[in-house]
Amino acid sequence: TLFEALYDYEARTEDDLSFHKGEKFQILNSSEGDWWEVRSLTTGETGYIPSPYLAPV
């Protein structure tokens, strides 16, 4: 399942991933609570992002 960003987000740590509203992601790991490890389909980068900022496509 692909997810889309509902809002912009600016990374706060080196493990976070900055992204823009509308960017699409592949979920790599969603078992860590509200922070999911994802791969951006736009940039190819991986990192953690807050799951409340995402919605299924």
Results as ranks from 00 to 15, higher is better:
Lys24Glu: 04
Ala55Leu: 08
Ser51Met: 09
Thr46Ala: 07
Arg12Val: 13
Phe19Lys: 00
Glu37Pro: 02
Lys24Thr: 09
Leu54Lys: 04
Gly44Ser: 05
Arg39Phe: 08
Val38Asp: 00
Glu23Leu: 01
Val57Ser: 08
Leu28Thr: 04
Gly33Ala: 13
Gly47His: 06
Thr43Val: 01
Leu28Ala: 01
Lys24Gly: 02
Val38Gln: 01
Leu17Ala: 03
Phe19Ile: 08
Phe3Ile: 03
Trp36Asn: 01
Ile49Gly: 04
Phe19Leu: 04
Pro56Trp: 06
Leu2Asp: 04
Glu4Arg: 07
Glu14Pro: 13
Tyr7Trp: 13
Glu45Val: 11
Glu37Gln: 13
Thr43Gln: 01
Thr13Gln: 11
Ala55Gln: 12
Pro56Gly: 05
Asp8Cys: 09
Thr46Gly: 02
Glu45Ala: 14
Glu32Asp: 14
Glu10Cys: 13
Leu54Val: 10
Val57Asn: 05
Gly22Met: 02
Gln26Asp: 06
Pro52Ala: 15
Ala5Ser: 06
Thr46Ser: 09
Pro56His: 06
Ser40Glu: 02
Ser30Tyr: 12
Gly47Thr: 03
Glu14Leu: 11
Tyr7Asn: 07
Arg12Phe: 09
Phe19Asp: 00
Phe25Asp: 00
Ser31Ile: 10
Trp36Asp: 00
Leu17Phe: 14
Asn29Ser: 11
Tyr53Arg: 02
Gly44Phe: 07
Leu6Pro: 03
Phe19Asn: 00
Thr1Pro: 12
Ile27Asp: 00
Glu45Tyr: 10
Arg39His: 05
Ala11Pro: 05
Ser40Thr: 03
Glu23Arg: 00
His20Leu: 11
Ser51Thr: 07
Ser51Gln: 07
Asp16Lys: 14
Ile49Arg: 00
Pro52Trp: 15
Ser40Asp: 02
Thr42Trp: 13
Glu10Pro: 05
Asp15Val: 14
Gly47Phe: 07
Ser30Trp: 13
Glu45Arg: 15
Thr42Phe: 10
Glu14Ile: 10
Leu6His: 04
Leu6Tyr: 04
Val57Gln: 06
Phe25Met: 03
Pro50Gly: 05
Asp8His: 06
Asp16Thr: 15
Gln26Trp: 14
Glu37Ser: 08
Glu14Asn: 12
Asp15Met: 14
Asp34Ser: 11
Ile49Phe: 01
Tyr48Ala: 04
Ala5Asn: 01
Pro56Asn: 05
Trp35Asp: 04
Leu54Gln: 03
Arg12Gln: 14
Asp34Arg: 08
Phe19Gly: 01
Asp15Gly: 15
Val38Arg: 00
Thr1Leu: 13
Ser18Phe: 04
His20Thr: 12
Ser51Gly: 10
Glu23Trp: 08
Asn29Tyr: 07
Tyr53Cys: 12
Thr42Lys: 13
Tyr9Arg: 06
Arg39Leu: 11
Thr46Cys: 08
Glu4Ile: 15
Ser40Arg: 14
Pro50Leu: 13
Lys24Ile: 15
Thr42Val: 10
Tyr48His: 08
Val57Asp: 06
Thr46Lys: 09
Val57Arg: 01
Ser18Val: 04
Asn29Ala: 08
Phe3Val: 07
Gln26Ser: 08
Ser30Asn: 12
Ala5Phe: 01
Val38Ala: 10
Leu41Asn: 03
Ser51Glu: 04
Gln26Cys: 11
Ser18Lys: 05
Ile49Ser: 02
Glu4Phe: 14
Pro50Phe: 15
Ser18Gln: 05
Ser30Leu: 09
Pro52Gly: 15
Tyr9Phe: 08
Pro56Met: 09
Glu37Lys: 13
Tyr53Gly: 05
Ile49Cys: 06
Gly47Trp: 04
Pro56Tyr: 06
Lys21Asn: 03
Leu41Ser: 03
Leu6Met: 09
Asp8Thr: 08
Glu14Lys: 12
Pro52Met: 15
Pro52Phe: 15
Phe25Thr: 00
Glu10Ile: 14
Glu4His: 08
Asn29Thr: 08
Trp36Lys: 02
Ser40Pro: 00
Asp16Tyr: 13
Ser18Ala: 07
Lys21Tyr: 05
Ile49Thr: 03
Ser40Leu: 06
Glu23Gly: 02
Val38Thr: 01
Asp34His: 11
Tyr7Ser: 09
Glu14Arg: 10
Asp8Phe: 04
Gly33Asn: 11
Glu32Val: 11
Ser51Phe: 10
Trp35Ala: 06
Thr1Gln: 14
Glu23Cys: 06
Tyr7Asp: 08
Thr43Ala: 01
Trp36Met: 05
Thr42Leu: 14
Glu4Ala: 08
Glu23His: 08
Ala55Ser: 11
Asp34Lys: 09
Ser30Thr: 11
Gly44Ile: 01
Asp15Phe: 15
Lys24Ala: 05
Val57Glu: 07
Gly22Asp: 02
Ala55Gly: 10
Val57Pro: 05
Asp15Thr: 14
Thr13Pro: 05
Trp35Phe: 10
Tyr9Cys: 06
Gln26Phe: 13
Phe3Asp: 00
Glu45Leu: 14
Leu28Asn: 01
Trp35Tyr: 11
Thr43Phe: 02
Asp15His: 15
Pro50Ser: 08
Ser18Cys: 05
Ser51Pro: 09
Gly33Ser: 12
Gly44Arg: 03
Asp16Gln: 15
Thr42Arg: 13
Asp16Arg: 14
Thr42Tyr: 09
Glu32Leu: 14
Gly44Cys: 09
Asp8Met: 03
Trp35Ile: 12
Tyr7Phe: 13
Thr43Lys: 03
Glu32Met: 14
Ile27Pro: 01
Lys24Leu: 15
Trp35Pro: 11
Gly44Thr: 02
Thr43Trp: 02
Leu2Thr: 09
Glu37Ala: 08
Ser40Gly: 02
Glu10Tyr: 10
Asp15Arg: 15
Asp15Ser: 14
Gly44His: 06
Ser31Glu: 11
Leu41Met: 12
Val38Met: 05
Ala55Thr: 13
Pro52Val: 15
His20Tyr: 14
Arg12Asp: 10
Gly22Gln: 02
Glu32His: 13
Leu17Gly: 01
Ala11Leu: 02
Leu6Cys: 07
Ser18Trp: 05
Gln26Tyr: 14
Leu41Phe: 07
Ile27Met: 06
Leu54Asp: 02
Gly22Thr: 02
Leu54Ile: 10
Val38Lys: 00
Gly22Trp: 05
Leu28Pro: 00
Pro50Asp: 04
Tyr7His: 09
Glu14Asp: 13
Glu4Lys: 07
Tyr48Lys: 13
Pro56Cys: 07
Leu28Ile: 12
Leu17Lys: 04
